[in-house]
Each structure stands twice: as C-alpha cells, then as structure tokens.
C-alpha cells in the first residue's frame, strides 16, 4: 500500500522552496550585492507594532540602528523615528527571465532604515535576499549537475547493456575508473588550471560540469543492469524479429523500463550534488563573491568572531535541511514504489 501523500508531500515542499528561490528578485527586499557598510552584522530586524510611547500602529514598523559605542557589530535601536513596512514597493533593480528589468519588491521599508529579516553579513548585505538568490545557484547547481550525470549515465548504461561484449567491457571499466577517482582533487586540479578570477556564471557552469560529469558511473551501472534484463524480454525479441531498429527498441521498449531507477537516482543524487556545491563554495572553490551561494555564505563562519557571535550566519546551512529532507523522503517513496513494481 503506497499512500500518494508520501510522494506528493516532499514534492510540494520542494516545489514551494524552488518557487521561492526562483522569485527571489520579487521576494527579496534588496539586491544580493547591495552593501550597507555602516551596518556590518546587523541582527535580524525586530518588527514592531507598538512604539516607544505605547501607541499601537496598525501598520508594522521598524527602527533604525545605532552603533553600540566601542562594540563593533552590535547595535541599539534608534527609537526616535518610526519606519513603516510597506508592501509592493519600488527598490533595487532585478532581472527576470528574458532580461526584463523590474523594480517591484514584495516588501521594504523607507530609507535610510533597512529591514533584515534574518540579519546582515559582514558587508551589511541582507541575508534574506542573499539566501534567496544563493538558493538559485545552490539548488539549481544540484539539479543541473544531477541531470547531466543522469543523461550521460543513461546513455552509457544503455549502450553498454544493449550492445554488450567489448563495448560493455570498455564502458564498465571506464565507470570503475570514475568511481575510484577522488573528485575533490579533480576539482582542485581543474580549478587551479583556470585563471584565478572567473565570473560567477563561468564558475557555476564549471562546477556543474565537473560534478555532473564525474558522477555518471553509478547511474550507468544501474541502467546497464536493467537494460541487460530488459533486452532479453520476449516483446523486445519479437520487436527485433519484426525488423525494429536498435534505436527504436531502446527508445520504445527498453528505456521506459529504466524510468523508475533514473527518478530514484535523481532524488538521491540531487542532494549529494547540492552538498558538493555548498562544500566547494565553502572552501572558496565554487561560486565566488559577490554572487551568493549557500556555500560561500557559510564561508564567513570560518572566522572565529563570526562563528561565535552571529547565529544568523548559520541560516544558509539550516536552509539545506528541509531541502535534503524532502529529497530523502522522495527517494524513499520512489524506492518503495519501485520495489512493489
């Protein structure tokens, strides 16, 4: 008995997270690179309804920040002025697909106050905005790299299983080679080979290519196993005797059998690859500043004072938990469904 809920719940959660990340420009109050040098490590902004005179405001508002004298990175609220939170405001420019420039943001506060829902980083950049924009890089790096691995793995696995003999032998030896290769060092080497500073887009594509191309071996082996058994089925033999071409047999009779395995592998690989991107960016080998990724946002935790003083710098790491959880639940549900046939 499979409850459809077990598959649809993680799918819904993932869809929600991806939707949020995709509409980062609109949901985020600021641009990911807009700095406030006067407010490094500003804490999450408190949203008030009652002002210092005890007066109730129907519209929520925030206060400006004052430096705590002699205490870097800590602030008091400036209770003199009230800055109301406004919805559907104009702000920093952002681009949506097709290079349309927009200024509309879901919410914001009047200048010079800032609203940092989950605090600010060392340059006074809004963590919430960076989290959303960074998710675009981290989540989609995993997604793209996994699709790349799966496409390559599916191709090689199908060819190896279908043609057998020396083709199979060669491809499977190659797969073993890739399984034995330490991919971290491969990435170090590739990164060292390229110029010191490459654009975030180039770094992103490189990351996806390397992570994706190294990981094709496991799906290839699984697909090969299924193709091996599928090509001996009677309906495939019958199709062959009717004169069907190899390509037709693969496309219409054999590859549909691998869908279950490929989907399960996708649910397993994507979180792994997201983690790979996060780890590499954390080490400074992935996507570089000022473009945010959940990995390079965590990188500031390598500094002692950040690690012990500013808990909101952990949030990009915490954001990974619901993503991973939904992928694991999805993989579990798919695996169960696969076993039952």
């Amino acid at each position: 008995m499979i409850k459809t809920r077990t598959i649809s719940l993680p799918l819904l959660l993932l869809g929600f997270i991806h939707l949020m990340v995709l509409s980062a420009g609109f949901l985020a109050p600021y641009d990911y690179a807009s700095q406030n040098r006067a407010m490094p490590f500003a804490p999450p902004t408190t949203i008030h309804f009652i002002d210092s005179h005890g007066e109730w405001h129907f519209r929520p508002f925030v206060y400006g920040l004052l430096d705590q004298p002699g205490n870097f990175g800590f602030y008091n609220e400036d209770r003199k002025h009230v800055y109301p939170v406004r919805f559907f405001v104009n702000g920093d420019e952002y681009k949506v697909i097709g290079n349309v420039n927009l200024h509309l943001h879901l919410f914001g506060v009047t200048e010079p106050a800032r609203i940092f829902l989950i605090g600010a980083d060392g340059y006074g950049r809004d963590q919430f905005s960076r989290l959303l924009f960074g998710g675009q890089i981290s989540l989609f790096a995993g997604l793209l790299a996994a699709s790349l691995s799966l496409v390559v793995g599916l191709g090689f696995g199908a060819v190896a299983g279908f043609y057998g003999k020396w083709t199979d032998e060669t491809i499977m030896r190659l797969a073993e080679l890739f399984l034995a290769l330490p991919w971290l060092y491969l990435l170090f080497a590739v990164r060292a080979f390229l110029p010191l500073h490459i654009s975030p887009t180039a770094a992103f594509m490189l990351l996806v290519l390397v992570i994706g191309l190294v990981g094709w071996a496991r799906p290839a082996r699984l697909v090969r196993g299924i193709v091996l058994s599928a090509k001996e089925r009677n309906y495939v033999l019958a199709g062959r005797n009717f004169g069907a071409s190899d390509l037709y047999l693969l496309r219409c009779h054999i590859l549909p059998q691998t869908v279950g395995v490929v989907l399960t592998q996708a649910a397993l690989l994507i979180p792994q690859y997201i983690m790979a991107e996060v780890t590499l960016s954390f080490l400074g080998l992935g996507v570089g500043e000022p473009a945010p990724s959940w990995g390079n946002m965590l990188a500031s935790l390598q500094q002692y004072h950040v690690l012990i003083s500013y808990w909101w710098m952990f949030i990009p790491g915490v954001a990974l938990i619901p993503v991973f959880l939904s992928y694991f639940l999805l993989a579990n549900a798919l695996q169960k469904r696969l076993k039952l046939g």
């Binding site: 996060v278 935790l301 690690l307 012990i308 952990f314 790491g317 990974l320 991973f324 959880l325």
Partner: peptide
Amino acid sequence: ITALLAIPELLLALGFLLISLR
C-alpha cells in the same frame, strides 16, 4: 535517523565547533 540524514555534515561540524568554542 532521517533527521540526522537531512542535516548536512558541514553544519554539524560548524555546530560542534561553536559549542566547543562557547
């Protein structure tokens, strides 16, 4: 176990470092 699986090792490491520093 599922919860532990969903927590990235990097976060665990950072968390333990924080605790031991504190």
